[in-house]
Amino acid sequence: MYIVSTFEHSNYLELAITAIQMKGIAKENILCVPMDKRSEDKKLFDTLHSADGLSLLDLPIILATVLCLLGGIYGFILKWGPVLWGLIGFFIGFGIGFIIKLITTKKYNNRQKKLKATEVVMIIDCNDNQLDMIKDILWEHNALGVSKLSLG
């Protein structure tokens, strides 16, 4: 009898594994397969000059700082003063940067949506009478999916 389950990387995964071991399942009967993530591994060695997933924030925050500074400067001669114009500049800059980034990197955005992807597949070899107990433990520890597998 096998139980196949999927997880995200988190402390709960290790809590689940240790809880199952405490219930008497030997370490040798637990198989974990951490999945390589497509986006990361492909992009990782792309080029020296490309950053990674965070580049979504880079442009917005840069434009936000620039326009916040300019808002602060021109605020001294505009009616509403430097504080308000600084804040207005910040939000306009961030908004423009965000929109540009969203338009230019649509693909990136699609990838972000699959964030709750399976990261670890765990297969546990156990007896029929341990089945429910292990399934409960897995669900309690935020498993994404659990399924039993009995062949023959």
């Binding site: 370490k27 040798e28 009967n29 198989l31 974990c32 951490p34 965070l54 297969i123 597998l149 062949l151």
Partner: peptide, 29 residues
């Protein structure tokens, strides 16, 4: 925060590969 999270994933994945991939695990086929 993003980078610390990635480091966590990387470290945990390394740990699992090292400790939970027993050579003689009875595969279901």
């Amino acid at each position: 925060t993003v980078e610390n999270n990635k480091l966590f994933d990387w470290e945990q994945s390394k740990f699992l590969k090292k400790n939970y991939q027993y050579k003689y695990f009875k595969m279901p086929f």
